[in-house]
Design a binder for these strands. Structure first.
Lengths: 201, 201
DNA sequence: TTGCATCTCTGCATTGAGTGCACCTATGGT
DNA sequence: ACCATAGGTGCACTCAATGCAGAGATGCAA
């Protein structure tokens, strides 16, 4: 089990790295799944036993991230307001880029901006994450929040962050060569800006 | 021009109606673009000169709706608060189901819930609408809102509505036969629920 | 009416994502 | 050593989507 699992994890990482390199070099549309599989030295068919779609290779950490954010909600400090807790979870959700190849987050942002398919998948995952967090948020504050309010609140916070992110991406549209570091920092900063109004009460 | 335009509009409507009927009867995945085109009596290739993708046939009114919402923002009454104006625009955006075959909105909601591709496209369009509205909102309140705040605010309102919608869809998940009318009414009601907190200040 | 230009419709070929199936191989347990 | 199971792989297939080029209709001018 352990041996086989480690092998699978290694192949998975190889796929992500190969995809990163290829997307960087030949663009998203210019790279086929067959290319990625070949670069990672597996059969084309096997790619789809690691990732359900071509887009998903850009979100290899989605599950882990959501689980970590949920943990933050579950282990909330007593007396912390829902909105503040939500902000901490969202902040983690948007900034935890561990275990990923260098420049991966920046590449992903650029592809989010430029490739409709990537944007669609990202928004879908974001919504799922939002719902999952909302569910646990409602459980964490049974007195203050019913489920409907929790989802609406999570949606509002998520939407605000997303709006700020879009705004930053639009601005950097003019820079033909988007600086990876600046783009990532801006993403994190967007959270601060968007959530500021929520921290007052 | 007028003659040719009317012909195109008629074909377009025929496509939407054919797609509605086929999706209803054979499901989304069970219907091919060729089926839709054949039912509307045009060549398969021609379908893509009317809609850029299979999903887009489910959002034939997207442009008009966004334009109408933008008009609402542009013609805002003096003294109306940004959040209230935004609510009016969102309300219109989510409830204007004119010129569509009966049951179309309910079908769309069901497919949004069940088909990932439809969900992805819908979220994408929603984001675009949100950005467009935000741009004009910032223009309408140059004193109170800079562009970043406008986008964050629009994102928050949009997210809240979306969250409420998701919650309602989840609840109706248990009902195996979702009542179209109830589903649509619930969608409109969701807006009221989600936006209630924004109306107090 | 005739001719010319433009635009739409259409079929054909092609690419590439994604799936179902069947076979093979290797790993792990007995 | 043997067997059962699970992952890897090739093959064939479906379907969305695009590029291209030809056919046909339409509008305009002479």
């Amino acid at each position: 089990m352990s041996l086989i699992d480690r092998r699978r994890a290694r192949t998975r990482r190889a796929l992500v790295e190969a995809a990163t390199e290829l997307f960087e070099r030949k663009g998203y549309e210019g790279t086929t799944v067959a290319d990625i599989a070949a670069a990672a030295e597996i059969g084309t068919r096997t790619f789809f036993s690691y990732f359900a779609s071509k887009e998903d290779v850009l979100f290899p950490d989605a599950d882990a991230r959501v689980r970590a954010a949920v943990e933050i909600v579950k282990n909330h400090k007593a007396g912390e307001a829902p909105a503040q807790l939500l902000m901490r979870a969202m902040k983690y959700l948007a900034s935890a880029d561990n275990d990923l190849p260098g420049g991966f987050a920046a590449l992903r942002l650029r592809l989010f901006r430029d490739v409709p398919a990537v944007r669609g998948r990202a928004l879908q995952l974001l919504c799922e994450a939002m719902l999952e967090i909302a569910k646990h948020l409602a459980a964490a504050f049974p007195e203050q929040l019913d489920e409907a309010s929790a989802v609406a609140l999570s949606g509002a916070v998520t939407g605000a962050v997303l709006g700020a992110l879009y705004h930053l991406l639009e601005k950097s549209d003019q820079a033909l060569d988007p600086d990876p570091v600046a783009l990532c920092d801006a993403g994190r900063q967007a959270i601060q800006v968007a959530l500021a109004p929520w921290l007052r009460p």
